[in-house]
């Protein structure tokens, strides 16, 4: 009967899981896009590949720490329960993490890989057998990884959406919302990383690509949030009452000002402002470094807030308590 059984660690975990999925997806996509038979965005593909596994690995560690009995986490893998989103999610997450690491490994520059293995004692022969060049299999690994990344992106939403007891969550739109938010966060994180990498300054076409990608994902996310709100209003009373949490209730300001405003609409406006001249009037895309920094950071904050709001408000919502909340 604690109001919040899931707290900040879960929020962070959901955010990081989605972030990895988004990073992998964007990086994989960049790997597939070619101009004249040559990869169009090799630096994006590499940056994404190298970053992708870490957030989810950290997130999973946090999730395990959040368990009442962290050392029993292995039990997640001694059972498979197809009815439980968490059970499916655990497997999905694990496989995705492994693929993401393999994919990152495939993108590891030769000298880094050699340096890494030079630290492994020579007697550990089995380990040294892993010292192989996978760069030829990047496309295959990306192809295998795509569905998993989408799966993880969706899963973080399904985990909440599958809970029929919480009217705030219990709609199929939550999964999509979380997915597009994840993909948008991935694109934004890549943009941020590229902008911050001063040794290899980001190039204009790269900025343009990532901004375009993000505009698409944010728009899709908006197209889910609107029906979520409208549908909720038209739904059964309990859902309508649950939506009150963000339509007048305790999470209203956080949702509208910070998430919708700062986390979604403002970065979208910045990105459109940057892209529109080149798109509509055919002008050269310049790409302001500062605006890219601002937009990408705000998108990440928005992605985090979405999960924060959903995890907390969702726990407050309930079929039998809602009437009394008002």
């Amino acid at each position: 009967m604690h109001e919040f059984n899931w707290g900040l660690l879960i929020v962070v975990y959901l955010f990081l899981g989605g972030l990895s999925a988004g990073l992998f997806f964007a990086a994989g996509l960049a790997n597939y896009l070619e101009v004249d038979g040559q990869p169009a965005y090799p630096r994006i593909a590499r940056m994404g590949a190298l970053l992708a596994p870490w957030p989810v690995a950290l997130g999973s560690a946090l999730l395990i720490l959040d368990l009442g009995n962290w050392y029993r986490f292995y039990k997640l893998f001694t059972h498979f329960r197809w009815e439980s989103p968490m059970s499916i999610g655990s497997w999905l997450l694990t496989l995705f993490t492994l693929i993401a690491f393999a994919y990152a490994f495939a993108w590891l520059p030769e000298e880094w890989r050699m340096k890494l293995f030079s630290k492994v004692p020579a007697t550990w022969k089995q380990v040294h057998r892993l010292n192989v060049d996978l760069s030829a299999h990047r496309k295959t690994l990306a192809m295998i990884g795509f569905p998993f990344s989408i799966g993880v992106g969706i899963y973080t939403g399904v985990l909440l959406g599958a809970v029929s007891a919480r009217p705030f969550w219990n709609t199929n739109l939550v999964a999509q919302m979380f997915l597009f938010s994840a993909l948008s966060s991935g694109a934004a994180a890549l943009l941020l990383a590229m902008v911050l990498d001063k040794r290899n300054p980001i190039e204009t076409h790269e900025t343009k690509f990532l901004i375009t990608l993000d505009i698409v994902f944010i728009s899709l996310e908006l197209f889910i949030i609107l029906p979520y709100l409208i549908h909720g209003q038209l739904s059964v009373l309990a859902v309508k009452q649950a939506l009150w949490l963000i339509l007048g209730g305790p999470y209203t300001v956080l949702f509208w000002v910070f998430f919708m405003g700062l986390g979604l609409l403002v970065p979208l406006a910045i990105e459109v402002y940057e892209l529109a001249p080149s798109l509509l009037k055919g002008r050269t895309f310049h790409g302001s470094r500062n605006l890219a920094l601002a937009a990408s950071s705000l998108v990440l904050v928005g992605g985090f807030l979405l999960r924060y709001i959903f995890v907390y408000a969702g726990q407050l919502s309930s079929f039998h308590k809602m009437g009394m909340l008002h």
């Binding site: 368990l67 009995n69 986490f73």
Partner: peptide, 9 residues
């Protein structure tokens, strides 16, 4: 029970 509290939600 690993204490994930998913059932509580």
């Amino acid at each position: 029970c690993i204490g994930c509290r998913y059932c509580m939600l």
